[in-house]
Amino acid sequence: MLGDHAQTLVLDAHRSLQTRTLIPYNTEAVRAVIREAQSLSDSISILYQDQGQPPPSPYYEEAVIKAHALKRNYRNHLIYHQQRLDTLKDKFWEKGGMLSAAFGAETDTRKHMTTADEAFAKSYAELCMRLKTSYYEDADEPGMQGPQMMDAFDLLGGGVDAAPPKDVFVTVRVLKDVGDVETVSGARLTLTKGSQYSLAREDIENMIVQGFVEIID
């Protein structure tokens, strides 16, 4: 039926929105929608053969219906893809802007990504990084005074958790075998599963967001 495939796409997008996950790319439906749009557009242009002159009555109505169907296909197609991109962006922010944590090989998101999704995620990450580092670069310009914004505030750092930290120091337990790590202060830690550390929050913030360690209260 006309428009069925487009409907599938919207339902898929809705499902993705509700479950907050990336669902497998529905190649068949997307291709069907594109082909449907192609044949609709072909048949409309046949009806409009007389250089923009509206066709006589019964054909005019046919053209209107087809044009609406075409528009609907187009919108559903966009909705589906916009929802995909939004999901990818959410995942990226949730993991504090670290690609490997958000889209690593073992994540569910990654398993459902297509080539285009991966290209988007990478360039989006780069865009965010450019935004973030632009604050640093401005610092070198003459005339800038006072402490830099970025010294106090990491744009991606805390993930989507916007609550301010309570303590400067935190006690953490390691959840994953990561190996030797050097922190921003130059201190070396050996992260083996189950071990505990008390550290400055600044040092360990990334790893909390990425799920390497958890805070013990």
Binding site: M98, M129, D180, E182, G186, F212
Partner: peptide, 22 residues
């Protein structure tokens, strides 16, 4: 250089470093 490297990689880009990277 080590300090600059840490600043760029860890603070700016949120990467984790192995001890041989710096």
């Amino acid at each position: 250089p080590a300090q600059v490297a840490r600043k760029v990689l860890v603070t700016e880009l949120a990467l984790n470093l192995a001890p041989d990277a710096v």
